[in-house]
C-alpha cells in the first residue's frame, strides 16, 4: 500500500503542484534539488488548470485497476501557462473529443490501493464546462 508514498504525492495529484526555477523553467512533478543546485532554486508552482487538448488516445485493452473500464481515455493537454501534461480524461466519450478543444482539470478518484482500500485521488481533465 505504501502509505508514505501516497501521502507524499498529494500536492501534485490534488493541486497540480509542480516547481518553477528562478530562470523560468517549470517541471512537474516536483523533484528534490540536484547535487550542487541551490536548495531554493526551485519554488512550488501550481500549474494552470485549463488548457487545450493537444492529442489523445483511447485504450481498449486495460489491466489492473482499469480492467473494469471498456475504454480509458488519455490525453495530452497544453496548459494555459504553456506546460504540457498527460492525464486521464473523464466526463466524455471519444466522439466528443477534438484536438484543440478547451479542457479543464478536475479532482477525481484514481482508484483504491491495498487490501483495506486506501482511496487515491488525483487530477483528470474533462472538456471545459459550457456555461
Amino acid at each position: 500500500m505504501n502509505l508514505p508514498k501516497q501521502w507524499r504525492l498529494k500536492g501534485q495529484r490534488y493541486r497540480l503542484e509542480g516547481q518553477r526555477h528562478s530562470d523560468g523553467r517549470v517541471r512537474f512533478p516536483a523533484q528534490p534539488a540536484k547535487l550542487g543546485e541551490a536548495s531554493d532554486a526551485w519554488q512550488p508552482y501550481q500549474l494552470a488548470n485549463t488548457g487545450e487538448l493537444y492529442s489523445w488516445t483511447a485504450q481498449r485493452s486495460n489491466r489492473n485497476e482499469f480492467d473494469h473500464e471498456p475504454i480509458v481515455l488519455v490525453g495530452m493537454i497544453k496548459l494555459a501557462d504553456g506546460c504540457m501534461i498527460t492525464a486521464q480524461l473523464t466526463d466524455c466519450e471519444p466522439s466528443e473529443l477534438q484536438i484543440g478543444m478547451a479542457m479543464e482539470a478536475v479532482t477525481r478518484s484514481w482508484g483504491k490501493v491495498g487490501d483495506d482500500d486506501l482511496l487515491v485521488y488525483g487530477y483528470k481533465f474533462r472538456p471545459k464546462l459550457a456555461d
Binding site: 473494469h68 473500464e69 473523464t90 466526463d91 478536475v106 479532482t107 477525481r108 478518484s109 484514481w110 482511496l119 485521488y121 483528470k124
Partner: peptide
C-alpha cells in the same frame, strides 16, 4: 455519480 466520483470529489468541485 460517474465511476470516478464520490462525495469527496464532488465536494472539491
Amino acid at each position: 455519480p460517474g465511476p470516478d466520483e464520490d462525495t469527496i470529489t464532488m465536494a472539491i468541485e
